[in-house]
Amino acid sequence: MSEHIDSVKTYALVFAALIAATVGTTAVAFVDLGPFSVVVALLIAVCKMLLVALFFMHVRHSTRLTRLVVLGGLLWLLILIALTMGDILTRNWVGVPGR
């Protein structure tokens, strides 16, 4: 295929960054941040996901249609999370007798 391919050096750097992020996630797990533990872990995970998609999966050099497909997938994940949380976060708004 005639697509642009990154240099080995770029790949190695991305790989190093991914490993570093993994170490980071593990390290953070030992620090008690309260509810923010999850937030930090997810943030790191999102960064890793972006690195993999953009570099390893070549989305950075892909056509607009391919990017649309990637964005569509993310949007659908967002739908799943948003509407599910819409239930979970509002479940206790109405008082339940005896609870």
Partner: peptide, 15 residues
């Protein structure tokens, strides 16, 4: 629309 399968499953009334 999937939540219409959960109307009696302790789903929040708002959802």
């Amino acid at each position: 629309v999937w939540g219409h399968h959960l109307f009696v499953s302790t789903q929040s009334v708002y959802a």
